[in-house]
Amino acid sequence: MTARKALVTGVVGGIGAAIAARLAADGASVVVSDLPGDAIVEAADRLGLPCVGADLGEPASAKAAMARLERDHGAPDILVNAAGGVRNQVGTTLEEVKPEDWKCIFAINVDATLYLSQALVPAMKAKGWGRIVTISSGAGLRPSLTGIHAYTAAKHALVGLTKQLSLELGPHGITVNSIAPGFILSNPATRRQWEAYGPEGQAQLIKRIHTRRLGAPEDIAAAAAFLTSTEAAWITGQILGVDGGIT
């Protein structure tokens, strides 16, 4: 890994931060990214890693950010797109779904992976080596516990995009896989959801998990470390559930 350069997005959240820390600890040169502002600067300072702030769900912003990244740090061999989430939304009925809320969730959960891949894959092709890991969800395989239509649809779309990119990029030495985390207390949104279950709902969820515990960001980071390694060279197009067996 000491020869590899990685970009990890979504590091203001616990999962992205844990992945960035793990890859850096394994020896990769890591740059982190999230929305511009104090939060990304503070996250980068905590991690001790350089950052590039950008709205990665917006094509022009993503393209400009990737140009700065390559100019200042070199082209990444590894992309882990952990940016995503519910964007502070809550579950609603079908009739209450607003177009702007739908598009907002798709932008960060799906569009960002497309735009980043478009920007970074040419350099990976030139090297004949690359690793792309997306962070999907159990909501990309079944209905979501959040009750948010756009989140469920977006994560299903991300699973499909992951498989399509795998088919296209495999001949160039680039693997593309996705990690589907189970319930992890990694950010304010998941903590609010956990608290909303109440003691009875929390106990029921834990009972469904084979390991009888919630996951930690480090569990996802361990999976990402493997999928971006040389040992995972013949693993691509896979959706790895890291959920304690709940699936």
Rank of each mutant, 00 (worst) to 15 (best):
A150Q: 06
H172V: 10
L165M: 15
G170N: 09
A153E: 02
E95L: 15
P171W: 14
K98G: 01
P171F: 13
K155H: 02
F106T: 04
T152Q: 10
S117K: 00
P143H: 01
V133G: 08
L145V: 10
Y151P: 03
H149Y: 13
L114T: 02
H156P: 05
F106V: 00
A157W: 09
V133M: 05
A112C: 03
S136V: 11
A119N: 02
A123S: 13
S166Y: 02
L116N: 00
E95M: 14
E95A: 15
A119P: 01
G128Y: 13
I148D: 04
W129R: 08
L116V: 00
N109L: 08
S144H: 01
K127R: 15
G173F: 15
A157K: 04
E95T: 14
T175E: 13
A150I: 08
G170P: 14
N177K: 10
N177T: 12
I132K: 04
T152Y: 00
G160T: 01
V121H: 03
V176S: 13
L165C: 07
H149M: 10
M124S: 06
K125R: 15
T152F: 00
F106P: 06
P181F: 02
K103L: 13
K98M: 07
A119L: 01
G140V: 03
I174L: 14
L167R: 15
T175I: 12
G128N: 09
V97I: 12
I148P: 09
W129E: 08
I132C: 09
K98I: 04
I132W: 05
A150D: 04
T146Q: 02
Y151I: 01
T134S: 13
H156A: 12
V176M: 13
K155F: 07
T113R: 00
G160P: 02
L141K: 11
M124H: 10
D111K: 07
L161R: 03
P181C: 01
R142G: 05
V159D: 10
A107M: 07
V90W: 08
K127W: 09
I108P: 02
V90K: 11
I179D: 03
L158C: 05
P122A: 02
V90F: 09
V133S: 07
H172F: 15
G147E: 08
P99I: 03
S137C: 01
L116A: 01
S117Y: 05
E168K: 14
V176T: 15
